[in-house]
Design a protein around this nucleic acid. Structure first.
Lengths: 251, 251
DNA sequence: CGAGCGATTGATTTCTTTCAATATCGGTGG
DNA sequence: CCACCGATATTGAAAGAAATCAATCGCTCG
């Protein structure tokens, strides 16, 4: 607070957020593996937008794809609308993650992205990015890497849909935990940015099932949850649970 | 048959299969959208292997990723092994489709690819491809497009896992139908290259459920199936089924 | 303070799995 | 050429997991 009045400090504090080079998320984001000079080139094409408020859309299916996005702060969800108009959540985006990569195949976004809380995004114009990818081999590699990883993660996500509700929620929570941890946030205590219904939708389960599972996990002493505030008490046990079905009564 | 004895014809017939430019699948494959000269550059780095026999692996999880593959003929399945060693089929590959794109994120393949029938593949060395992608913008674009589309397809596949067994099988059959059709093969009559168990595994259902569904679809007059020989009698009705649950008894 | 959405919890239903018993097909060897 | 074998497929009956239906609670925001 004492420094707030000083313009120079205030400005520099803003700058730290305002360029890729100093961004604390750069190792998770597109600049990962790029040389200093290359980050500067990337930096020169990246734009920052006004903040996105909760429930505001970053893009909608059908929008022309003229840029990809990287999330700087906050949280987003991406979803598809199926033919009967129901929302199918395809992912939750945390800071440092790219959004909109599923749109390269078309000229339009196939999915929707909406803010779950107030969020800041970086905008990367497509034509500039494609051009830059021609001249920077490691950027090219990084783009392919990111897409490829997302593909693999999606495959894994699908393969988890064959497991029990219990296992799916355990895996989901551990995945969130790991992602927060990589961002130097607590792996065991965090606020869920999505509702029970959204978790259920994402996992192919109902709100009621998620609610019951949270209650069961709480009873087992695996976690504490109050509203959206979550504390993982026994991540190891939760991890076991994600692999092997818990024995309910006997033993 | 009359021309078989003539070496020149025989050789040229082989050549038709042996280069990208004349390959009937090129519009579905990596050369799509490339100029003639660019296809020739691509052609120069592509290698053709000996045929892969049924049950032979193209690659295994953990193998060093030194190339990507394009299927020329036959059929493959890709799968993951989860922690308890069970196979989770992630996709069926038809001619003209690329395989192994989920490995860019790593230096190793995360998944397995195995032939469902005798198959021919084209091998594209990674270093050459990455280099070429630097100098050919449309190749770069095509690679991103393909990955992006696969990502989107995977998302759709996941979103279908929330639907009923009936709908999932209907969607699966129509998807196969569409893919065969794009290859100038019959959209209504084709041989399934995978077992009931493999279909079930892919869709997150059991062999028994698939078998029962085929019987039900047959009773409804939607299709004829004998072994792996399938005829879609009412693709339109099947399509409706993929969208709206069939009314079982009443109406 | 009331309205309304989100969450919790219970009772019941439904769909798919699991278990089990045949049946059929393709390939092999006598 | 045919009989037999294992693998794959079909079909039935029972069990189980999650959905659905329903009621209540609690928090947040006008």
């Amino acid at each position: 607070m004492s420094a707030n009045g000083r313009h120079s400090i205030f400005t520099s504090a803003l700058k730290i957020q305002m360029n890729c080079h100093d961004c604390t998320l750069n190792r998770l984001c597109l600049p990962s593996c790029l040389a200093h000079s290359e980050v500067e080139l990337l930096e020169s094409i990246v734009k920052r937008n006004r903040p996105l408020h909760k429930a505001e859309h970053l893009f909608r299916a059908g929008d022309a794809m003229q840029q990809v996005y990287a999330l700087r702060s906050g949280a987003l969800k991406t979803y598809l609308l199926d033919q009967d108009g129901s929302e199918q959540i395809t992912g939750f985006i945390l800071p440092g993650e790219l959004v909109g990569l599923d749109a390269f195949g078309n000229h339009c976004f196939p999915s929707y992205a909406v803010a779950l809380e107030t969020s800041l995004v970086c905008t990367i114009p497509l034509t500039d990015l494609e051009e830059l990818a021609g001249s920077i081999p490691s950027l090219r590699k990084q783009l392919l890497k990111t897409l490829s990883r997302e593909l693999h993660e999606e495959q894994q996500h699908y393969s988890h849909s064959r497991e029990s509700a219990e296992q799916r929620l355990a895996i989901f929570l551990l995945n969130l935990s790991q992602r927060y941890s990589r961002r130097n946030l607590s792996a065991t205590s965090f606020i869920l940015s999505m509702s029970r219904g959204e978790i259920g939708n994402y996992l192919g389960l109902t709100t009621e099932t998620i609610s019951r599972l949270f209650s069961r996990f709480r009873q087992l002493g695996l976690l504490q949850i109050k509203g959206r505030e979550l504390h993982l008490m026994q991540p190891t046990a939760l991890n076991r649970l994600g692999k092997i079905e818990v024995q309910q009564q006997t033993m």
